[in-house]
Design a binder for these strands. Structure first.
Length: 378
RNA sequence: GGACGGGUGGGUGAGUGGCUAAAACCAGCAGACUGUAAAUCUGCCGCUCCUUGCGGGCUACGGAGGUUCGAAUCCUCCCCCGUCCA
């Protein structure tokens, strides 16, 4: 395991500036990872992702296992080669699908039995299987299978999921240590995921036990599933504090633009979220003065760019009127341009946060960012 | 000139005596989306009044009459449109 992680600077607020080195490049943290579930960040070419300086993206074990199949990807030389992506790849284990595909699965201590949403066939995803599939994919960072629960959940339910996630992490660890590494990416590492719902003591306990297993990095899962943001922050902050300071901390599935900074201040180094990409395809665009629904009538003849203060290629070239037309006409280019802008927006915030930590003015940046994002409609 | 078929809300189009201000889809107006079963989903979508309620009034299924307690639905005449025959 050769994942290198270096904390370059810690802000008084708790925000960390770091550098994560993978076999596919160095990632400046805190980092925002675009989500590319099926081996593609929807509506984006790999070239376009490179233009946005994306250094790490997410792919999904469960989805790629079902289609096109991990063995095929292995034969094609691993996921990097298959999708022609030179940067880093982190694969989620399928734990989120335990949550999102609740109607199609059955959990037991052994693992998760899924009925495929594609063709109805049954599949068993165990912690060992999740490792095996991810080894075939050859991602740079894999995740141990976890059980992600809904909110609100009882303490009992949270404790049970946390316990199972811990047991699965142990089995994952054993599988990692006893089986051959990925032939396409021998330096692949795996992170464990902390669960425990919204119960601080469960989170602390779960974190401590996982830390004892000595993973090269840790994720905090099961947040941003419906609970208030303040609560997410409390849990994330408390949990992060229980994790080893020299290892990367990944908060899974977050967040909204105005929340990213909060999480950084919780000591989070990595985040991912579908919001920029999915919302883009649904015509919801982010600006420094609040979001806009590009399909709305008010933009039909609006010659301005999405965000007049944005430097992305979309804002430098295309008008709201044109994007409004593309969206209404259901033209593919609309999804492409919208996604490009939204991703730029998220990545730009993270970049600004990193710079603010580097220059030691994160708290001032913080108030400015909040003010800008909350200023209201453009 | 004759024989059929048809004219329904912005569009396509169901409905063929009451449960119909009228299905569904599209368009239109807004909203949601947090480790992606998502280019998806939800609400509104004749006009109007108010005490905003599974509320009242008005208008509406080509036009005009009629039958009926009640008609988009049945009858009569007229006007359009399509196909075929002369």
């Amino acid at each position: 395991m050769t994942l290198q992680f270096e904390v370059v600077k810690v802000d008084p607020s708790g925000g960390r500036l770091g550098r994560l080195t993978t076999p596919h490049g160095t990632i400046e943290t805190p980092a925002f990872m675009p989500v590319g579930t099926a081996g593609t960040v929807k509506a984006m070419t790999q070239e376009a992702l490179e233009e946005l300086h994306v250094t790490l993206l997410l792919a999904n074990t469960y989805h790629l296992y079902l289609r096109p199949g991990h063995e095929l990807i292995r034969r094609m030389g691993g996921l990097h080669r298959f999708m022609a992506w030179r940067g880093g790849i982190l694969t989620d284990s399928g734990g989120y699908q335990v949550f999102s595909l609740a109607d199609l699965r059955k959990i037991s201590d052994e693992g998760v039995r899924f009925r495929s949403h594609l063709d109805g066939t049954e599949h068993m995803l165990t912690p060992e299987k999740a490792i095996e599939v991810q080894r075939a994919l050859g991602s740079d960072i894999g995740m141990a299978l976890d059980e992600c629960i809904e909110y609100p959940g009882t303490r009992e339910r949270a404790a049970s999921a946390a316990g199972r996630t811990l047991a699965w992490a142990r089995r994952s660890k054993k599988e990692i240590e006893t089986r051959a590494p990925s032939d396409t990416n021998p330096q692949q590492v795996f992170f464990a995921i902390v669960q425990g719902g919204t119960f601080q003591d469960l989170r602390r306990e779960n974190a401590a036990e996982l830390v004892a297993l000595d993973f090269p990095g840790y994720a905090i899962g099961g947040l941003a599933v419906g609970e208030p943001h303040e609560l997410s922050c409390e849990i994330a902050g408390e949990t992060a504090a229980c994790l080893p300071p020299d290892r990367p901390r990944y908060l899974m599935g977050v967040g909204k633009p105005e929340q990213l900074l909060d999480y950084v201040r919780c000591g989070i180094d990595m985040m991912d979220c579908v919001l920029p990409t999915r919302n883009a395809r649904n015509g919801y665009l982010y600006t420094r003065r609040g979001p806009l629904h590009i399909k709305n009538a008010e933009f039909i003849d609006d010659p301005r760019p999405i965000d007049e203060t944005c430097a992305c290629v979309v804002c430098r070239r295309y008008s709201r009127a044109y994007l409004c037309h593309l969206f209404r006409a259901n033209e593919i280019l609309g999804a492409i341009l919208n996604t490009h802008h939204n991703l730029y927006f998220f990545l730009d915030i993270m970049k600004a946060i990193r710079e603010a930590i580097a220059f030691g003015n994160l708290s001032r940046f913080s108030s400015e960012l909040q003010a800008r994002l909350e200023a209201g409609h453009p």
